[in-house]
Amino acid sequence: MARRTKAEAAATREALLDAAEEVFLEKGVARTSLEQIARHADMTRGALYWHFRNKADLFQAMLQRVRMPFQELVEEIGDPSLVERPLEAIRLACLKGFERLEQPRYRRVHAILIHHCEVFGDIDPLAMQNEMADEACGALIDYFGCAARLGHLRAGLSPEVAAELTQAMLGGLFHDWLRNHERFSILERGTVLLDTQLELMGASSSE
């Protein structure tokens, strides 16, 4: 019975997060009340407060469902040989990220964070975006640094500049796609752009 109760509580929490996604996307974060979210989920405010302290707590939990730490993406690939192929690790991790972004939940939540969220109480969307960007850039610097030590990075290109160039390309692609995701597949276009950029950044056979 306890196991069933725990499962039911988890299902309730997920249903509230699903409802938050839908209402935030429709009304914006600042204009959405917790009562509206509870009502949309066909639950009481008491049920919502059982799982979340406030709107900021709920918003953070919603973001956590779609977080994609770069190192976790690499580890999910499950290929130990990538340690000796850091540029390929970057490529495969980014492709896995593109695949996830095309899933409706990932697209919705990122659209909320970028386009439907203002600074409100304890919710600061710019700070959250900066945190994710800094995390990704730090991981990219580590992998490009490894590529440089192995002689896989283009001569004269520092890991820091390589990471910034890659992050700028990915950020531009992401925002272009998020504005109108029906125009193109981020996986298809991202694969072409990423492969081209990594080829230009890699050491040539003559180096």
Rank of each mutant, 00 (worst) to 15 (best):
D57I: 00
R91A: 08
A47T: 14
A20G: 09
L153S: 08
L25H: 05
F120P: 00
A10E: 12
L34F: 14
M169P: 04
C137L: 14
G156E: 10
R149D: 09
G156F: 03
D57Y: 03
A19F: 06
N54F: 08
V161A: 05
V29S: 00
A7I: 10
E76L: 11
A56T: 04
Q103N: 08
A7L: 13
D142H: 08
G78L: 06
L34K: 00
L58Q: 02
H40V: 02
I112D: 00
R65C: 01
R67D: 13
E88D: 14
A15H: 07
R4P: 07
H115Q: 07
G46P: 05
V109P: 02
N180Y: 09
K27A: 05
L173P: 02
A111R: 14
A38V: 12
S204M: 15
A9K: 12
G97I: 02
M1T: 12
A127V: 00
W50C: 09
N54Q: 04
G151Y: 01
D57M: 05
L58C: 06
F184H: 08
Q60Y: 13
A203P: 04
S81E: 10
R179V: 06
E207C: 10
R189P: 06
E99L: 05
A2T: 07
E207R: 07
L95F: 07
R154G: 01
I77S: 04
I114N: 03
H152I: 02
I114L: 06
G28I: 11
L25E: 00
Y143A: 00
T44M: 08
L140P: 04
L198T: 05
A111T: 15
K96V: 04
K55D: 05
S185A: 04
A10C: 03
V74L: 00
L48P: 04
M128H: 10
C117D: 01
D176Q: 15
F174W: 02
R85L: 08
S206R: 15
L58V: 05
Q167C: 07
R39C: 00
E35R: 15
A93K: 06
A19L: 03
I112S: 06
L34I: 02
R53C: 00
S206T: 15
R189T: 01
F184V: 10
G145R: 09
T5H: 14
E135V: 11
L170Y: 00
T166A: 10
R189A: 06
P125I: 02
Q71K: 14
H51T: 06
L170N: 08
